[in-house]
Amino acid sequence: MFILDLSYIAPVEAADAHMDAHVAWLQQGYDSGMFLASGRKNPRTGGIILARGERAAVEAFCAADPFTQHRIAEYRITEAAVSRTAAGLEALKG
């Protein structure tokens, strides 16, 4: 599993201007089965995505995010080997 830590490097207004394209990109991630969960950070400085797949594919997909392409945000990708989960979250295991 991967934790995708998205941090804004541009004003939040720039993110708002490209939010529809980013949300469409997120949907592609869910449709492909790569994304498991996502949401905004609080305070709103970026977001977090839980993903699965091959690292190279995850990195390539993050590079295609409109937020990345328009230099609105940067990703920090952390790989985690999940060994235990609460009931119902077994999909997070490796």
Rank of each mutant, 00 (worst) to 15 (best):
I72N: 03
I9T: 07
R55E: 12
C62R: 06
A81C: 09
A91V: 13
Q69C: 06
I77C: 06
R44S: 00
S38G: 03
L4M: 11
A24C: 07
N42L: 09
A51G: 03
D65A: 02
I48S: 01
G88H: 09
A37M: 13
R55W: 05
I77P: 06
G29F: 08
A80K: 13
K41H: 04
F61L: 02
R84W: 08
A14D: 15
T45C: 00
A63D: 11
Q28A: 14
L92S: 09
Q69I: 01
D31G: 10
A60M: 07
A37T: 13
R52M: 13
G29L: 10
F35N: 08
L89F: 15
F61P: 00
G29E: 12
G29Q: 13
I49P: 04
F35S: 04
L6P: 03
V58F: 10
F67R: 00
M19T: 12
F35V: 08
L26Q: 10
A15K: 02
A10G: 09
G53D: 11
R40A: 05
I49E: 05
L26A: 04
A15W: 02
I3E: 04
R40M: 00
L50K: 04
R40N: 03
Y30E: 07
L36Q: 13
H70I: 01
P11G: 06
H70Q: 06
G39P: 00
L4F: 08
G46L: 01
N42W: 06
H22C: 05
A86C: 01
Q28D: 12
G29K: 10
Y75A: 01
P11Y: 05
D31E: 13
F61V: 04
W25P: 08
Y75W: 05
A14K: 15
G88T: 05
E54F: 04
G53I: 10
A81R: 13
A15G: 11
V58I: 15
G46W: 00
A24W: 07
L89C: 12
L26M: 15
Y8V: 00
D31K: 14
I3S: 12
G39I: 01
E59Q: 10
A63M: 04
A10F: 02
A21V: 04
E79T: 13
L36S: 11
E54K: 14
G46P: 03
I77W: 09
E79H: 14
I72V: 14
L89I: 00
E59F: 08
T78S: 13
E13A: 14
S32T: 14
A63C: 04
A81E: 12
G94I: 07
E79A: 14
G47E: 05
A57Y: 00
H18K: 14
D5C: 06
G47N: 05
